[in-house]
Design a binder for these strands. Structure first.
Length: 904
RNA sequence: GCAGAGGUAGCGAAGUGGUCCAACGCGUAAGGCUUAGGACCUUAUGGCUUAGCGCCCUCGUGGGUUCAAAUCCCACCCUCUGCACCA
């Protein structure tokens, strides 16, 4: 008895593969090249099984293409650019226990974790090695000779600078101001994962309407300037500190102290300021600059000091907070009446509706409800002077223009919700000045990119609309940041190129990464890159042979034939990747195809790098690499999928089965029967299906056919009495080859045991289907056999008897002729009454003629049907523990494709 | 709000005009194997009915096209994902 022991086998073949060097890609002009890449991982921790999924999908394709005779380049690098490692390092330095424990529990030595805290680079370098080891141990057929670190590798930084100069020359870099969420304590932008609270919050713009009053302005902040027609009063909060400030423009504003402190982040300078006693203002009146009405200034404690100016204009009919608050004090101010200025079709009283729905306890939801309804369906009513009849959307724009022209409008950004930095500080919005952007909104560039995307092959095609959508909606993208690791912007060294912008065309660097190391750093310049990538003149001072070699490498390997990535990157990285190729390279170097996959859960458990757990490393201790690679079976394409690890049992069981058969193969020496033709025909179809499924990255279907369906067929063949040595050997050889891309180690082992001489990827070992093996007639008749076995089982269950003899009555030749001519007629017409007229006289065909669904469409062969049953007689006797008699009969139940059954 | 994807048996998931009551897997139940458990094997898993036939109900809801629909068309309901300076 042979037993599958993955570890031993994988160690042996892992070594064999490394020594063979076949993953190290070399130019070979006799072969078609195939270049595929996977995004660079960010080495801030161990990779988890979800990430293994993406790389396994890539590796399967790489191996598949090698077996089909392609010269494959599958390199891998690492991304060092960016901020998160710095945060992690800092958290370790601060002694954050949970984080330290996580690393230690994952097997990082404690001294090493301590080093992570000393320098972020210690962390990145450590995990770069760790991830590389994981990839090797899981059998990724990666060419490591071309590996580098973005943008830590110096020559690569020079490449990125070249790229940015090119973009700038083409007018695709712009400069401008831009609001970001900012930590005032650490003086850096607050990315989502730098936040303790407020992931997903973004800057929103408030309009500030300046109400003039006695030489001051009362700047009321609002998202809805058009509601100024309905203002009944101004709210100030008596419990917060207000200050009188003088701006550079000379204007005096009354604002909350908090607002004053935030102004400096938004390009406004406060010349002087002093505390201001709001009590002096309360009950004074201020003039509404649009309607001319006199409105009072009242106290309200719901005014939030953290939002904008701390001055609010009250529009009770259209803002639930104002409405509810006004109601509380209506006795004191009987003259203040809510004023309706927006009509929404289909509702008389939207405010009442909102308050009924959400109650006074949830005024935030009520506010959202009213705002949305009015924005989308509202029309300004007769109280709005020349704005009457305008939609709310239009009115908002018009009102902003009007106020602006009157000099009464200003703007201010606030976060859309509370944001707290990991350091504990409250996030604010900072308007960054002179920020550099890549102008993905450039019309001509966008059109060219879209055109190219339309011609790209995308697996699965469903992902294409998402990508197109992302590109259409792409705007200017901030390309630089302050702080963190990265390449300095060549013409403005204060800025570092941010990670999504320095990783758009790095795939081209793979073609030269192993050669550029040989060149002195100082000699690497733009001319070099122009020469290699854009056919520019050769630069001087560099060894000509290396130059030539680099250029040959690029010309041979580029473009990327297939890029494999998770679908979360579609709206950013993938889009930038295509955009930038279109901008920089000639058309024949643009990306050819994309393979997109979804997220994966393992036994329903969500995976996340930051939470640790289920790392590739930890699972490799439990399972073999081939077993882990079964993860590719989880889904076909872009769908999110669950990897059910219990599949591993079924995998092992089948491997054991194949090993046993191989072991016993020499002793099997039977004759060919009808089953041989059946098995070969089926396997032959599987070869075609599997090839097509692999080609289109439908791995679930591919593995199902190549492994599960095919081994089931082989089992069935053996059970039913097939015992031709040649057929079995041929079938197993085919199965091994079909699943080799997925399970490389065990299949090499099995192939050797079957007498294979070379590594499966060293020659064109992919099975090719042979149309002459396709035998539909036999497949049809084998289906008849299977159906008949089912029928007999049903019958025996029903009768509850142990049979002595079962007689199978095959219809005679004449009946098959009648049946087949019915099939021919059906192909011409499915008109039931016509067919009944023609064939009604054959009582054995009546069952087919009752309803259109039952009309037969497969031709059947009398001799073959007889042969199938005769040759499976032994099997049937074993199965039913009964004598079996097969006879040709004119019994009325002996129907072609449905033999009569007589239990005796 | 804007955009994208999707609703199939207890669950996951195939199937895109005809052997579809719907592959495959999980779960559940019964039996076998085992000292026992696990693993493994067999069988069952909408209803009625019958010597294997057949009939009815089912693929988010409602309607339509067709000899024939989970599959095509229309309307409606519901769910999930992304929205940027962040890898």
């Amino acid at each position: 008895m042979v037993i599958y022991e993955p570890k031993k086998i994988e160690e042996k073949w892992g070594k064999e593969y490394q020594e063979s060097g076949i993953f190290t890609a070399k130019i070979n002009k006799d072969k078609k090249k195939f270049f595929l890449t996977v995004p660079v991982p960010y080495p801030d921790g161990y990779l988890h099984l979800g990430q293994l999924y993406t790389w396994t999908r890539a590796d399967i394709y790489a191996r598949f293409m090698r077996m089909r005779g392609y010269n494959v380049l599958f390199p891998q690098s690492f991304h060092f650019t960016g901020g998160p490692v710095a945060t992690i390092s800092l958290r370790i330095r601060n002694g954050e226990k949970a984080l330290i424990d996580r690393f230690v529990n994952q097997g990082v030595p404690p001294e090493q974790v301590k080093k992570f805290g000393e320098n972020p680079l210690n962390l990145t370098l450590y995990f770069t090695d760790a991830i590389k080891r994981d990839f090797i141990d899981t059998g990724m057929s990666i060419d490591w000779s071309r590996s580098f670190m973005l943008s830590y590798t110096k020559s690569y930084s020079k490449f990125v600078q070249w790229q940015f100069r090119k973009l700038r020359e083409k007018g695709l870099i712009t400069q401008g101001t831009h609001p970001v969420i900012w930590c005032p304590n650490e003086n850096t932008p607050l990315g989502d994962h730098d936040r303790l609270v407020g992931e997903g919050e973004y800057p929103i713009q408030f309009d500030i309407i300046k109400f003039p009053l006695d030489g001051y302005f009362l700047p009321a902040a609002t998202l809805r300037p058009e509601t100024i027609f309905g203002v009944t009063n101004i709210w100030l909060n008596p419990n917060i500190e207000y200050r009188e400030i003088i701006l550079d423009s000379g204007e005096r504003w009354i604002v909350s102290a908090e607002f004053e402190s935030k102004l400096k982040f938004q390009l406004k300078n406060v010349k002087s300021s002093k505390t201001f006693d709001t009590n002096s203002l309360l009950h004074k009146k201020v003039r509404n600059p649009i309607t001319g009405e006199e409105i009072p200034i009242l106290a309200a404690d719901f005014v939030d000091k953290n939002i904008a100016t701390g001055v609010v204009m009250s529009v009770p009919m259209h803002a639930p907070f104002d409405f509810v608050y006004l109601k509380r004090i209506e006795k004191e101010y009987p003259n203040i009446k809510p004023k309706k200025i927006i009509d929404v079709q289909g509702t008389e009283d939207l405010m009442k509706e909102a308050l009924d729905k959400f109650g006074e306890k949830d005024l935030d939801s009520a506010t959202r409800f009213v705002y949305n309804k009015e924005l989308n369906f509202g029309v300004m009513n007769q109280n709005c002077a020349d704005f009457s009849g305008m939609s709310v959307k239009d009115a908002r724009k018009k009102m902003e223009e009007k106020l602006e022209s009157m000099g009464l409008l200003d703007r201010f950004y606030e976060p859309s919700g509370e944001v707290i930095c990991r350091c504990g500080a409250r996030g604010v919005v900072k308007v960054l000045e002179n920020q550099w952007f890549i102008d993905y909104s450039n019309k001509e560039w966008k059109d060219r990119t879209l055109n190219h995307v339309m011609s790209m092959k995308i697996y699965p095609e469903e992902a294409k609309p998402q990508l197109v959508d992302a590109i259409v909606n792409m705007e200017e993208k901030a390309a630089v940041r302050k702080g963190g690791l990265g390449t300095p912007l060549p013409w403005d060294q204060d800025w570092l190129i941010e990670p999504l912008s320095d990783s758009t065309i790095y795939m081209s660097f793979y073609t030269i990464a192993h050669l550029i190391q040989k060149i002195d750093e100082e000699k690497i310049n733009d001319e070099l890159f122009d020469y290699v990538f854009l056919d520019g003149p050769a630069p001087s001072g560099i060894d000509e042979s290396i130059l030539k070699e680099m250029k040959q490498e690029f010309d041979y390997w580029y473009p990327v034939d297939l890029r494999i990535t998770g679908r979360e990157l579609i709206p950013n990285h993938v889009a930038f990747y295509i955009f930038t190729h279109v901008a920089i390279f000639p058309q024949n170097k643009w990306p050819r195809s994309l393979g997109i996959n979804g997220w994966i859960t393992v036994n329903k458990q969500k995976l996340s790098k930051s939470k640790g757990g289920l790392t590739i490393r930890s699972e490799l201790e439990k399972y073999g690499a081939d077993e882990l690679r079964l993860v590719a079976y989880s889904a076909n394409g872009i769908d999110d999928a669950d990897w059910d690890t219990s599949n591993i049992n079924s995998f092992d069981e089948r491997i054991n089965f194949l090993m046993s058969v191989i072991e016993l193969l020499n002793g099997i020496k039977g004759e060919r029967k009808v089953f041989d033709e059946y098995l070969l025909s089926k396997i032959n179809s599987i070869v075609d299906e599997v090839t097509e499924n692999f080609e289109n990255m439908r791995y679930r279907s591919a593995i199902f056919g190549a492994f599960f369906e095919s081994t089931d067929l082989l089992k069935f063949y053996l059970e039913i009495g097939g015992n031709s040595n040649e057929t079995i050997k041929r079938t197993i050889e085919t199965i091994i080859r079909l699943v080799h891309p997925v399970f490389p180690f065990i299949t090499e082992e099995l192939d050797k045991r079957l007498g294979g001489k070379q590594l499966l990827e060293e020659y064109e070992s992919w099975p090719v289907s042979d149309p002459s093996l396709k035998n539909e007639a036999i497949e049809n008749e084998m289906d008849v056999l299977k159906n008949t076995i089912e029928d007999i089982k049903n019958l025996l269950n029903l009768l509850k008897v142990k049979p002595n003899q079962i007689i199978i009555r095959i219809a005679d030749k004449g009946r098959f002729e009648a049946y087949n001519s019915l099939v021919s007629e059906v192909e011409k017409s499915r008109d039931l009454s016509e067919l009944q007229k023609k064939f009604g006289r054959y009582d054995f065909l009546l069952g087919f003629l009752k309803n259109p669904k039952r009309l037969p469409d497969r031709r059947l062969d009398h001799d073959l049907e007889h042969r199938v049953f005769s040759e499976s007689r032994d099997y049937l006797m074993r199965l039913f523990n009964s004598d079996i008699k097969v006879e040709i009969s004119d019994d009325k139940k002996a129907i072609p494709g449905k033999p009569g059954i007589k239990i005796a």
